[in-house]
Structures are given as C-alpha cells and as structure tokens.
Design a protein around this nucleic acid. Structure first.
Length: 325
DNA sequence: CTCAAAGACTACAATGATGT
DNA sequence: ACATCATTGTAGTCTTTGAG
C-alpha cells in the first residue's frame, strides 16, 4: 500500500491577535467584558504559534457521538460543555444559542452591522469589530456605545479564537441571536455552541482525511482540545491524573510505533510537571496557566517523545488506514 | 424560477517564527 | 544557515440566499 501523507493543516484561529487587542484594554473596558461573563478571555496567554499538527492529531482522535477523545476502547477521555467553561471562562448558561431563544430578526442583524461599521465596503467583520474595541470608551460613554463594545468583543473573540471559520477576517453570525439582547448574554450556553462548532470541525477533518486531501482547514476552537487534555491532568485526583496521562502517552507512542515509556518514567514526568503546575491548580480559567512554554513542553512530553514530527505522520497514516477499513 | 450578490471554502504565495 | 512549520493575506471558485 502506498504511503499517504496526512493533510497539511491550516487554521484561521489566532490567539495572538486576540491577546494583542485585549492587552490594550483599560480597567473600564475589562469591566465591561467581565459584566457579560466573558472575563475569562481577558486571561488568554500570549501564544505566538499553535501546534496545528498536534491539533489535527487530537481532533482525529475525537469521537463526535461520544464527545470524547478516544484512544482505545478502554482509554476514553470524555469532555463536556462545562469543560469549555473551565478552560476559557465564558458563560455556560441554560439558554440555547441556536434554539428558539436565539432567533434574531434580519433587521437586528443589519442594525448591528451598521452600528459596528461592518457594512462599509472593504471592511470585514472582524476588522470592524476590532476597530470598535479600540475606541475610547469610559463610564461617561452612552449606553449604546457600551453595548456595542460588548457585542464587538464577543464577535471578535468568537471569530479569532472560539469559533473561527475558514475565511480570512470573517466570522459566522450563527450566534448573533444571543447577542441581540445585552442583558441576556450571560444566560446563554456559549460553551455548548463552541463545543458543537468544534465537533463539526472534527467531522470536516475526518472527511478530508478519508478523501486523502492534500491539505485541510482546521476550523473551530481546536485549542480547547489541546488544553482539554491538560485539564484532565491538573484537575482530577492524583491517581486518576497519572493514569490518564500514562494512557495518553502509552496510546500515542504505541500508535506511532515509538518505543513506549515505562509507567515509572511517566509517573515521574507527570510529577515533575505537577511540581511546576501545582501552585496554580485552582486557577480558573485553566487557559491562563498554559503559556507558550508550558504548552510546548507538555506537548513534547505527551506526543513527540523526542522523535520529532515523523511520529505525527505515522500516526495520521495509521488513523487514515483504520478509518477506511 | 432566475440571476446576481453575499457568504463560504480551497489553494497558494509571502512572511515570520522556530528548531536543528 | 537552513529547513520546516504556522500565520497572514489574496485570488478564484463554489454555494446559498433572496429580490424580482
């Protein structure tokens, strides 16, 4: 059988873009963000680059129906909408963003677009939202300006981090119904929306893999899956934590035909990492703990085992083979 | 229904960052 | 230094939508 290269992943997600803008916020703007329940996004760490291959690998391991990272029949890491809340600190309310509650009249869409300056030619949605966020807003500003700032913030972080699509500088408006009434933003389940969006992205990736596409566009918040794994390590009781870490490494090294580490070594590594992370265990949102270097280190430990990118390639080939049988 | 415009996706080039 | 990979920007194409 001819060896098929895994698809080259690309993505429009940009944590860096989001953080660059958020860093300019003064206390009042930060308070406005907190007021709508998106305060967790203020703690996004500056991530210059993500590891897209690792994202693709994690996504390929997700079972959409079970909402879990499935490494084998006995090694299943389930995740829930609440985990998105833990990781990113966005509202996890009871109202459905896409349900009847989230219906929005076309006139309201037009109104939002016009007020935020999204209707001018050549001004794309995310760029316009960004420009609005950079405006001077203070306690003395009008109610409508404050509301628009909050709307613009949600559009901005959804477009760049939580639910990015394939097109440069564009976002969906699928969730705009939940934006229409400012007072209700926190009542919606934004986590479920982000999660469903991500699961849809997983379907797309699997389609691309089965079609042996040369490249694939990762949409949705695959960053969550990277961190999701870490949440298991850092929030579960120690024994469980060590075991799930061991499972991850073992399963991966097995799939990659790389010599598995012994359980003792894994236990050791896990505890070394815990030593570094321990002091922050109860910090929420969890994302705030995973800066550039700690992410990189954990990914290296959990996946590469010092073998470089070839392990990923072998992985994807194996997965593709499994999926076609 | 038809057709044009807007929305959404793919491919690719250029640039920047990182690791060897 | 060089190679590789991620990000950003652009062009072209396919799809959906809605006005007439």
């Amino acid at each position: 059988m001819e060896e098929q290269a895994p698809p080259v992943p690309t993505s429009r997600i940009s944590v860096r873009k989001a953080v660059e803008v958020i860093q300019t916020f003064d206390d009042y703007k930060r308070w406005l963000v907190t007021e709508i329940g998106f305060g967790g996004m203020l703690k996004l760490p500056m991530l210059q680059k993500l590891n897209l291959k690792f994202s693709a690998w994690t996504m390929s391991k997700v079972c959409v129906e079970r909402r879990a990272i499935v490494l084998s029949e006995t090694k299943v890491l389930k995740f829930f909408a609440e985990d998105i809340h833990k990781v990113f600190g966005i509202p996890c309310g009871h109202r459905n963003v896409k349900g009847r509650d989230g219906f929005i009249k076309p006139e309201a869409v037009t109104f939002i677009k016009r007020t935020l300056g999204m209707d001018r030619t050549g001004v794309h949605s995310l760029r316009a939202a960004e420009e609005f966020l950079m405006r001077d807003i203070s306690e003395a500003s009008s109610k409508i300006e404050k509301d628009c700032f909050q709307i613009a913030f949600v559009i901005f972080v959804m477009g760049h981090v939580l639910a990015p699509r394939t097109k440069y500088d564009y976002g969906t408006i699928d969730y705009w119904g939940a934006l229409a009434n400012m007072e209700n933003i926190t009542q919606y389940n934004w986590c479920e929306f982000v999660l469903e969006f991500l699961l849809e992205a997983v379907r797309r990736l699997k389609n691309d893999m089965m079609a042996n596409n040369h490249s694939t566009n990762l949409v949705g918040c695959h960053l969550f899956l990277q961190v999701c794994k870490h949440v298991f390590f850092s929030t579960h009781p120690p024994v469980h934590r060590n075991l799930s870490f061991a499972f991850m490494v073992h399963a991966h090294s097995h799939a990659c035909s790389v010599k598995p580490l012994s359980l003792f070594q894994i236990f050791f590594l896990d505890n070394v990492d815990l030593g570094i992370f321990n002091k922050k265990h109860n910090v929420l949102p969890r994302i705030s703990d995973f800066d550039q270097n700690s992410r990189k280190n954990m990914i290296t430990i959990a996946t590469d085992i010092g073998k470089g990118p070839t392990s990923y390639v072998k992985c994807m080939v194996n997965i593709a083979a499994q999926m076609t049988t």
